[in-house]
Design a protein around this nucleic acid. Structure first.
Lengths: 129, 129
DNA sequence: ATTCATGCAAACAATTTGCACGATC
DNA sequence: GATCGTGCAAATTGTTTGCATGAAT
């Protein structure tokens, strides 16, 4: 369990922070590839996985499309526009009590949950009229 | 927008009902393929898609694995065991009020949401001790 | 020196699509 | 008989993996 401090790992971490707005693995790779043309896609995936496992990033599973990564690790929810794909944070309190309710109802243990709401963003609502 | 009442479409619908426990497209195909060896996988996918769009089935996007389909269309949540993959319904009230809160917070319109909790099932908890 | 991580390409899983043929309206 | 759906195979997308080489400890 000795983890190494490689240049690539730092770059991946940094890039998710720099891109700020929940990039996909692909987006991280593309951005990184500009300045560091010989970084490999496998390495980007491996490091995104590693960093998420270790709580340095948060993996967001998006229904119907590629996972996204968030450098903001405090629990919060997201919403995505079903028309244009716009993806953003929601400024709403995290429902920490529902994990406990779920544990009671199921007998599972459950420490966290994620919600990606699907809706129509203001811009797309306007367009459709 | 004229939709046709094909044998295959009915079979797909029926099979999701018969398999009851949230089958994946693959599972629906396998089951269906036994009695109807010349149904195609593309058709299964197309019909699962069609039926979900039209509210006759519910598509459940499962983080990290294939989508599942539920013939039980009343909103409810699901939980999956991160060890063994066991997937089941949760008997907990649906939080219908949070869509409204999200609409307020974001300006999006949002009529529904889905949650797949991730946890450790009782059997796996025991095994790990 | 050891061992863990990288780069590359190939493998993979889930799903979608193009197209000629067949079924339904 | 018009058109929508099917079967099949090939294409796509997102992601993982095997392996020889290279870097960090």
């Amino acid at each position: 369990m000795k983890s190494r401090n490689t240049v690539q790992r730092q770059l991946v971490h940094e890039t998710v922070g720099r891109l700020a707005d929940h990039p996909t693995a692909e987006e991280v790779y593309n951005c990184l590839h500009e300045d560091h043309p010989n970084i490999s896609k496998g390495t980007v995936y491996r490091n995104l996985g590693y960093l998420s496992e270790n709580g340095e990033l948060r993996r967001i599973a998006v229904p119907g499309s590629a996972d996204r990564f968030d450098h903001h690790t405090i629990p919060h929810y997201h919403i995505q526009c079903v028309c244009c794909g716009m993806f953003c944070d929601i400024d709403t309190p995290y429902l920490s009590q529902i994990d406990a309710k779920v544990e009671q109802a199921t007998g599972f243990s459950c420490e966290k949950h994620d919600i990606v709401f699907q809706g129509v963003c203001p811009a797309c609502k306007e367009k459709s009229e």
